[in-house]
């Protein structure tokens, strides 16, 4: 009888030990992985941090960038380019209200709406949902990187055209310290890693702003951007809007934007990692260099493939369309053909 009791006690002990181990050491359960993903999406707004980041892009040539990045709670992001020489000294400051881009080589400044604006949160939240539904997340291992503990995750797509990713996420802050992106064929597409990190560092924002010449332009207000749903777009516009009936696997409608004259529409679709954008406006001639042609029975499309995806341009009856996205050009052609 006692033996049975001992066995039960041993079983409970072992079981609870395994459970504790699994819960606190490995994020093996799906909701833990999801929690980490969710936190990693928003982490840049929750830390005071400085790091040097190395970025490689293979399209198909290799581009290499080195930047200094500073994050400050709750919405301040500073980026400074250290390499290549042609971009050295380029600075981007985004303080949650507006985004200032300064290119020292040309001494030119540009003001954009902030990417960290509270309204962006809705877009980020949505991107996260789409990522969680489009990818299978698996926990690979625990490693050490830059003297910190990191979780290594793999995101494999549930469709055949999306990329797969490997992420190295800091255990304490959930900051992604390294990310590798592979195309559908397994070819490397993108790679970044931090080569230096420093957490909980204090900064003087003023000092950072001083690096940009205080010209009159800095005080300029950024253009206003509002996002609309499909229905709102249709109601607000002065002419009927065309929507595509086909979207590449994994893509969903994200938002629509209008210009002030309500003549140009921009429809944005996303798979959580990338966007496909469809512009439409009253007919206009769009100048493009080095394009190729593709002819279907309905239309003639000009297209070009660049380092960040493909661009398609074609004319409808009374409208001109521009479609851009980072998916195989055949997929974009299918989208173009489905526009009604």
């Amino acid at each position: 009888m006692n033996l049975v009791k001992y066995l039960i006690a041993l079983f409970i002990f072992t079981f609870s030990f395994i459970l504790t181990f699994a819960t606190f050491t490995f994020p093996s359960r799906a909701e833990d992985s999801e929690h980490i993903m969710r936190s990693s999406f928003a982490t840049t707004f929750q830390i005071d941090f400085e790091g040097i980041k190395e970025v490689y892009i293979y399209r198909p040539q290799t581009f290499r960038f080195v930047t200094r990045v500073i994050y400050q709670k709750p919405d301040f992001v500073y980026t400074e380019y250290l390499e290549p020489d042609q971009l050295k000294g380029k600075i981007i400051i985004d303080d949650g209200k507006r985004r200032i881009e300064y290119l020292s080589v040309e001494d030119r400044t540009r003001i954009l709406p902030s990417f960290n604006h509270p309204q962006m949160e809705t877009l980020r939240e949505m991107a996260l949902k789409v990522v969680l539904s489009n990818f299978k997340i698996s926990f690979l291992s625990r490693e050490e990187m830059l003297g910190r503990e990191v979780y290594v995750f793999e995101l494999s797509p549930k469709n055949t055209i999306s990329p797969s990713l490997k992420l190295w996420i800091d255990k304490e802050t959930y900051l992604t310290l390294q990310r590798e992106t592979y195309g559908p064929g397994g070819e490397p597409v993108f790679f970044f890693r931090y080569i230096e990190v420093e957490f909980n560092k204090e900064f003087s924002r003023e000092k950072l702003y001083e690096k940009i010449p205080q010209t009159a332009q800095i005080k300029k207000e950024p253009p206003l951007v509002s996002y609309f749903t499909e229905k709102e777009i249709t109601e607000k516009l002065k002419f009927p809007v065309c929507f595509p009936t086909y979207l590449p696997p994994g893509y969903v409608f994200q938002a629509g934007e209008l210009t002030e004259e309500k003549r140009d529409v921009k429809l944005i679709y996303t798979n959580g990692l990338e966007v496909i954008v469809l512009f439409q406006r009253p007919r206009v001639n769009i100048m493009m260099r080095h394009h190729r042609w593709v002819r279907t029975d309905k239309m003639r499309i000009r297209y070009v493939t660049g380092p960040y995806g493909s661009t398609l341009v074609w004319d409808g009856e009374d409208k001109t369309f521009v479609l851009m996205g980072d998916v195989p050009v055949e997929e974009l052609i299918k989208v173009a053909q489905s526009v009604e």
Binding site: P60, F63, R64, P84, L87, V304, G306, T311
Partner: peptide, 17 residues
């Protein structure tokens, strides 16, 4: 580096490749 420039057009001068 611009989308309207096909892959490999002008990258060499901007970012050596």
């Amino acid at each position: 580096i611009s989308l309207s420039h096909p892959v490999g057009e002008s990258e060499q001068s901007l970012v050596e490749f």
